[in-house]
């Protein structure tokens, strides 16, 4: 019965944003698609063409290793983050509004930080002169301060630092909508806090958790800089290689082909998480 909301804006209203997004968002993708099948001129740029050489490189050992590295690192970080974020979000949603607001401000401030700054901060924190090494040495755990970066540990720490606030914010809406009376009802019927958690909270949030896992995975797939700053060359992920091929190897067709692959994987994953989200609506 929302008769007046329908058509309450003039029909020409969307033309400007549509034209804008078509030109500056979809056209670039179309160009990228044509570049991915263009002919590479070694040492130079590329010339128009229609060949699948760049895509055929996906079937090399070199690329297989990149893909495997990306997936393992991203999936590992996603699992760790969601596991850490889930109890955090539950606790957050139980706080009073003021407390929630403060924690959210902190999370957003960290989340919006440039990957460059996070990379720099963590490399400082894990460095020989200014960080954990100093602290451990001062406490007498190790003989003398050492650097913990670059290493796989440093990289994973960075990934988690980046993705943890994101995970909390993805989990926050479904968790905060969970009716607290359901848990209280379970308690009244004799369930211990842990039993309530296991038999009510977790089952009700299983699908949002799966959805969050996928979204965080896509988010960490997009990390382009930490592997360069905190990891070693064998830890470089797909995103890093796309930048590397585009800028330093001047192989735009191959970079574009990899970006297309990353795009398809991301879209499929986001679609999957949306599907999970829709199921949740029909069950309840």
């Amino acid at each position: 019965m929302s008769g007046m909301r329908q058509n309450s804006t003039p029909g020409w209203l969307p033309f400007v944003p549509v034209a804008w997004l078509l030109l500056f968002f979809l056209v670039p993708f179309a160009i990228m698609l044509t570049v991915s099948v263009a002919h590479r001129v070694p040492g130079g740029f590329y010339e128009p063409g229609f060949e699948f050489d760049s895509y055929l490189r996906f079937f090399s050992v070199f690329f297989g290793r990149i893909l495997l590295t990306s997936i393992l690192i991203s999936a590992g970080a996603a699992v760790i983050c969601v596991l850490l974020a889930f109890p955090f979000t539950l606790s957050l949603a139980r706080m009073k509004q003021r407390g929630q607001t403060i924690v959210l401000v902190i999370l957003l401030s960290v989340l919006s930080l440039s990957e460059v700054i996070i990379g720099f901060s963590l490399s400082t924190l894990l460095s020989k002169t200014a960080g954990v090494g100093n602290l451990l040495a001062a406490l007498g755990f190790i003989e003398e301060s050492r650097a913990y970066t670059p290493s796989l540990f440093a990289l994973m720490a960075g990934m988690c630092y980046l993705a943890l606030p994101y995970s909390v914010l993805v989990l926050y809406p479904p968790v905060s909508r969970l009716d607290p009376e359901l848990g209280e009802a379970a308690r009244m019927m004799g369930a211990s806090p842990f039993q309530t958690f296991r038999t009510v909270t977790v089952p009700m949030l299983r699908k949002p958790m799966m959805g969050a896992l996928i979204l965080v995975f896509v988010f960490t797939l997009g990390v382009y800089l930490l592997p360069q700053v905190l990891g070693q060359p064998q830890h470089w992920t797909l995103s890093v290689h796309i930048t590397d091929q585009a800028i330093f190897q001047s192989n735009l067709p191959f970079a574009a082909a990899m970006a297309v692959l990353l795009l398809l994987v991301s879209l499929a994953m986001v679609g999957l998480s949306l599907l999970l989200g829709r199921d949740k609506v029909t069950d309840t």
Binding site: P28, V218, G222, Y224, I242, A259, L263
Partner: peptide, 9 residues
């Protein structure tokens, strides 16, 4: 989407 994709686009 992963920002690298838009960046390359």
């Amino acid at each position: 989407l992963p920002p690298v994709i838009s960046a390359l686009g």
